[in-house]
Design a protein around this nucleic acid. Sequence first.
DNA 1: ACTTTCGCACAGAAAAAATGTTCGTTACGG
DNA 2: CCGTAACGAACATTTTTTCTGTGCGAAAGT
Lengths: 253, 253
Amino acid sequence: MTNTDRHGLIARAVGESGSATVQDLAELTGASEMTIRRDLDTLAAQGVLERVRGGARTLLLRGEEPPFALRAREAVDAKRRIAAEVASLITDGETVLLDSGTTCLEVARLLRQRPVTVMPLSLQAIHLFGEAPGSTTLMVPGGRPRAAEGALTGPLTLASLSALRFDTAVIGCCGLSAAEGLTAYDLDDAAVKKASIASARRVIAAADGSKLGRTAHAYVGPSALLHTLVTDSSAPAEEVAALEGTNTVVKTV
Amino acid sequence: MTNTDRHGLIARAVGESGSATVQDLAELTGASEMTIRRDLDTLAAQGVLERVRGGARTLLLRGEEPPFALRAREAVDAKRRIAAEVASLITDGETVLLDSGTTCLEVARLLRQRPVTVMPLSLQAIHLFGEAPGSTTLMVPGGRPRAAEGALTGPLTLASLSALRFDTAVIGCCGLSAAEGLTAYDLDDAAVKKASIASARRVIAAADGSKLGRTAHAYVGPSALLHTLVTDSSAPAEEVAALEGTNTVVKTV
DNA sequence: ACTTTCGCACAGAAAAAATGTTCGTTACGG
DNA sequence: CCGTAACGAACATTTTTTCTGTGCGAAAGT
């Protein structure tokens, strides 16, 4: 049991039951209470949960966007596979616009060292490219970083997007359905996605199955804007069929 | 002797004599040749020196800008002191534009956790703020990162600057004299500095003594544009006097 | 006032990084 | 084409760092 495993266990336990005491978690993981306290502090700092005296409480159940650190723990395998497929759809030499979100971050990992021009819309992805200046050309959009992930939003971001054109935009989403279209948790985020789609010749959406058929608050646009959707086999079949009816190519990995 | 010490020794040895063999360096540092090879690979990746068969060669003596990783090793103390003084000149609540360069990076370290709004012009500084989202508000400018430091330049950067106004701009420079004005190594960099100065109400230059009286290729503007100059005691006295004659307040730390 | 929880400080344990050695492979100079 | 020096991969060892548990006094809640 590594510390990361334990963190995962704790995050899941707290997330499922809504809250947990330090004692419970110590018993569950086999670690000492002191260790659990340290873990909880760490996870609280990451925005995974909220620290309360005696234990911890989940941050969900409030209609808010799940914290990035929490989302990053979910469906990692599916995201990796989806990202691999997306990366394979991108040809060397292309200019690529990379949206924020955990799936797109995986795509960023795969694009490193490849001869493409990339403009990522999150600080985390920018870090990835900035640290290993390989054959990839990096463009940084302006903006104000939002939340733990550092998703760039605001007028500067929109201005940067409107000044450029891309071969491909890789878009993540919080909700997607043929009926309700593409939706995001945050209005600013939605505006950025809208502008991203507008400045790319080809739009690839990367969304694991849990996103399909779901609708979030902020509307981005109709699903017909997407040229390709890459998802996994957990996607609801009827939703996939409906999306294919709107001229979107659906690839299931 | 830590590995960092050894890296410093190697960098200095190669820098002074122009080149060195693996054997020489192994003898000098007391480490094995394998370790030296690994060190040289590391330093080469950082852009401190160039790897050649049998040893390493300096990257200087070619009229180019000294690599960032090399500059970062020089005059660290002076830079820290200068940065501390600059940070003390900035009031809580201000909006601050932070130029690229090693000295400004030190200022960035000191501004973390302080309640100010900062827009750094280098990726390295953006990383600093991005990782510890304290009470500091971060703004990211657009642009193309240049060189190892990730100094942002280009039309996107200029557009970001022209869209905003700042209370204070902290400017680093490669050369500064009362007669020749403010100069930079790179034309793009100079353009960014020019725009930075234009969009700030107050301009603070941070330059250790070695920069004063020196002139680089790209002209930014007259020294009178600077409201305050923070430098250290190694600055040539006549140059300091001349700058004070152009309405610039000079602070020596 | 009493109990529980916290978190610091230290010591030991575990993990990670750095280093040295060996040895087969590769590049350069005759 | 061969010999020599240099290189770098793989492994063992050492060093450093990080993680973890325990004891104890302080702080928070009841």
